[in-house]
Amino acid sequence: MKVLVAVKRVVDYNVKVRVKGDQSGVDLANVKMAMNPFCEIAVEEAVRLKEKGVAEEIVVVSMGPKAAQEQIRTAMALGADRGILVETDEELESLAVAKLLAKIVEEEQPGLVILGKQAIDSDNNQTGQMLGALTGMPQGTFASEVSMGEGKVEVTREIDGGLQTLSLNLPAIVTTDLRLNEPRYASLPNIMKAKRKPLETKTPADLGVDVAPRLKVLNVAPPAERQAGVMVSSVDELVEKLKNEAKVV
């Protein structure tokens, strides 16, 4: 079985972004970029499937600027076999990414597609589900466990009330949640090896997909600031404040 993994280049999760002075967006100049953490979990899951002998080939794909090659190389250092970059400098919405992925699914015919549940920049949480609708594939979103069977996959999902397990016909889509696995680090020899793995570049036009945005961002503002609070020196003082000042207990 072939596994397709989608990885997004995003701001590193440790960075606290700032809004630009003219409120046109967030300031990404000189900010550390990295693979979206949920995508790291997606790559790790694919690699484990390969180690178990369930997956034969792992194809990693990213849509975005040329620099997204870095994230594809990282995925290859972790164990992906080859990469596809759909290169564009347009800001891609999830619908556009899903359409591009649908074309790649058509070409590659994977048995399983693994994505992150959410990109930590847009916080959209849409792409995997949209890909499901466009391809007719079933989806197991927010996965904390994936177990492959004959022509089917069982996915345990983190839902608001607890856990839910679904059985999906293959080919299927899985989106990862935090508890699915703990991603490994790439070793130096594997980072070197990754440089020689094949990486193909395409454009949205090659795939015949219109990626023009549907939403217009009118403004990006900083969130409301919280008023500075006070430090209390004892539990007694805390209780007094909660009772008489905040009046919440």
Binding site: V26, R214, N219
Partner: peptide, 16 residues
Amino acid sequence: RPIYAGNAIATVRSGD
């Protein structure tokens, strides 16, 4: 809608 873990609030208009 909030983006970047709520560190920014985007105002978006939909043409759909």
